[in-house]
Amino acid sequence: MANLKITLVRGLVNSKPVQRDTVRTLGLHRIGATVVRDDSPANRGLVHAVRHLVTVEEVD
């Protein structure tokens, strides 16, 4: 099963509270922070909701 490497590249200053909560749910706390998550439909949905704030790579 593949994993997703998610990196926060934009700040959360002018983002909506729902988007801030989504970024925190992914485990990201500051710009440049990176987490590795399972490639599941739930995680894909979270990433899709904040796709303008993060970059995503597939890793094995």
Rank of each mutant, 00 (worst) to 15 (best):
K5E: 12
G27K: 01
P17Y: 00
L53Y: 06
A2Y: 05
V23P: 01
E57C: 12
N43F: 13
H52W: 08
V13L: 09
P17L: 00
G11C: 07
A33D: 09
R51E: 15
N43I: 15
E58Q: 13
T25E: 08
V13M: 08
D60C: 07
D60H: 11
R10F: 03
A49V: 06
V36F: 11
K16H: 03
V23D: 05
N14V: 00
L8A: 09
D39F: 07
V56I: 10
S15I: 08
Q19L: 02
N14L: 02
V35K: 11
S40Y: 15
G45A: 11
T55E: 10
V56E: 13
N14F: 04
S40Q: 12
L4N: 10
A49W: 14
R44D: 12
V35D: 13
T22Q: 02
R20K: 03
E58A: 11
K16Y: 01
I6C: 08
P17T: 04
S40C: 12
E58Y: 09
D60S: 14
R24F: 00
M1T: 02
G27T: 03
H29W: 04
G32F: 08
V9W: 00
V23N: 05
V13R: 01
L4D: 06
T22C: 00
N43E: 14
A2S: 10
P41E: 14
H52E: 11
V9P: 02
G32I: 12
V56G: 03
P17V: 01
D21G: 04
G32C: 09
A42C: 15
T34M: 13
D60G: 12
V54L: 04
T7M: 07
P17N: 05
L12I: 01
T7W: 06
M1V: 02
V59I: 13
H29L: 06
R10Y: 03
P41G: 14
Q19E: 05
V35T: 09
R44V: 13
V56Q: 13
L28W: 03
N43Y: 13
T25Y: 01
I6S: 06
R10S: 13
A42F: 14
D60N: 10
R24D: 05
L8Q: 05
H48N: 15
H52F: 05
D38E: 10
G32H: 05
A33V: 13
I6K: 06
I31N: 05
I6E: 10
N3C: 07
G32Y: 05
D21V: 00
M1Y: 04
V59N: 08
V35M: 08
S40R: 10
I31M: 06
T22N: 01
H52S: 12
V23H: 02
L53M: 07
I6D: 08
R30D: 06
I6Q: 08
V18Q: 02
T55P: 04
P17Q: 00
L8P: 06
H48A: 12
T22Y: 00
G32S: 10
N14C: 00
N14D: 06
T34A: 12
R10K: 03
V47W: 14
K5A: 09
I6N: 09
I6G: 09
V13Y: 10
D60R: 08
R44H: 12
R20W: 00
A49E: 11
G27M: 00
A33W: 03
V56L: 10
V18S: 03
P17A: 03
S15N: 05
V13Q: 08
R30F: 12
L4V: 01
D38R: 10
N3H: 07
Q19K: 01
L26K: 00
G45D: 14
L28C: 05
